[in-house]
Amino acid sequence: MTAAQADLQAEFLEMPEGLRLDRPEVADGAALWRIAKDSRTLDLNSSYSYLLWCRDFAGTSVVARDTAGEPVGFVTGYVRPEQPHTLLVWQVAVDAAYRGRGLAAALLDGLTAQVAQNHALTSVETTITPGNTASERLFTSYAERHRTTVEREVLFDTEHFPDGPHAPEVLYRIGPLAFHPSRSPG
C-alpha cells in the first residue's frame, strides 16, 4: 500500500471488513463498466468512457477493492471547471455481493476527503432520477453526516434528452462543507 493509499484509507475508518479504498487504474475500467451495468439503475456509459474515466479522472474517483485487489464498488466524479470548489459525483455503484454494508457511504466519504486534500472543497453535487431511493438516501445521509444541507432542483428535464424517454435528473447540491487540512505524514 502506498502512502497516498494509507492516507486515503485512514480518512474513513468504517470500511467494511476486508475492503480498502484505492485510486482507480485503467485496468479497472472493465470492472467499473460491469458493476455499473449490473446495477440496472445507472445510465450505462460506453466501456470506453469507463477506461477514460479511470485514466483522466482517477484523482477525483475512488474504487473499493476486495482482498484479491478486484474492484467491488466505485464512485466517479470530477471538480467542476467553472466551480472549482464543487465535486460533481457522476456515478456510485457497488457490486451486488457487497451491497447493504455501507460501502457506498464509505466510498463517498473517502472520495470527498481525498478530493479535499487537493481542492478547497465546499460542496458536492450529483443528479438523481426521481424514485431512485437508494441514491436519495445515500446523498441525504451524506449531508446529515457532514452536518450540512441539501438543495434540490431539476437540472435536466425530460425534454432535454434526445434519445427517448428519460426521467428528469434532479440536482442535489450539498453544502457548505468544511474539511480540515490533512495531517502531514511522519
Rank of each mutant, 00 (worst) to 15 (best):
W90N: 11
S61F: 06
P130A: 08
G164W: 09
Q83T: 15
V89T: 14
D163W: 07
T122C: 11
T158K: 14
V75C: 10
P130Q: 06
V150R: 03
G164N: 04
V150A: 06
N132V: 08
A64F: 03
A116Y: 01
R55M: 10
A93L: 12
E82G: 04
P162W: 02
H180F: 07
F74P: 01
T149R: 03
F161W: 07
Q83F: 11
H166W: 02
R152C: 14
T76I: 15
G59V: 05
V150K: 11
Y48Q: 15
L52H: 07
S47T: 07
T158G: 04
A120R: 12
A68T: 05
I128R: 02
Y98V: 09
R99C: 03
N132R: 06
L111H: 02
T140D: 10
A106R: 00
G164T: 08
A93F: 12
V124D: 00
S182P: 15
P165S: 07
F57P: 01
F74M: 14
Y172M: 12
R99A: 02
T129Y: 09
A120G: 13
V75I: 08
W53F: 04
R152V: 05
A134M: 10
E125Q: 13
A113K: 07
A64C: 02
T148Q: 09
A120M: 09
T76N: 03
V89N: 04
V72G: 00
Y50E: 15
H160V: 07
V63W: 00
E136I: 08
E153Q: 12
H180Y: 14
R55E: 15
T127L: 12
T127G: 08
P81N: 01
A167I: 07
S141G: 10
A96S: 10
E125C: 06
G100W: 04
R145E: 01
L107V: 03
S123V: 00
V89Q: 01
L51H: 14
S61H: 00
V62S: 09
Q83E: 07
T122W: 09
D95M: 08
E82Y: 10
L108Y: 10
A58R: 09
A97P: 04
V72Q: 00
N118L: 10
P168S: 14
L171W: 02
T158M: 11
A68D: 09
N132K: 05
I174S: 01
H180R: 15
L155D: 04
N45A: 14
Q114F: 08
E153H: 09
V154D: 09
R145S: 05
G164V: 06
L111Q: 01
L138W: 05
H166N: 15
T133Q: 13
G100S: 05
E125V: 09
R55N: 13
H119T: 08
Y78W: 15
E169Q: 10
E153M: 13
A97T: 12
G175A: 01
E136G: 01
L171S: 11
E169Y: 03
P168W: 05
P162L: 14
P181G: 05
R55D: 15
T126N: 14
L107K: 00
R152G: 05
T127Q: 09
S61A: 13
L108T: 13
D66P: 06
G69L: 13
V79K: 00
D66I: 14
A105Q: 12
R152E: 14
L111S: 02
Q91H: 15
S135Y: 03
V63T: 02
Y172Q: 05
Y172C: 03
T60A: 03
D163L: 10
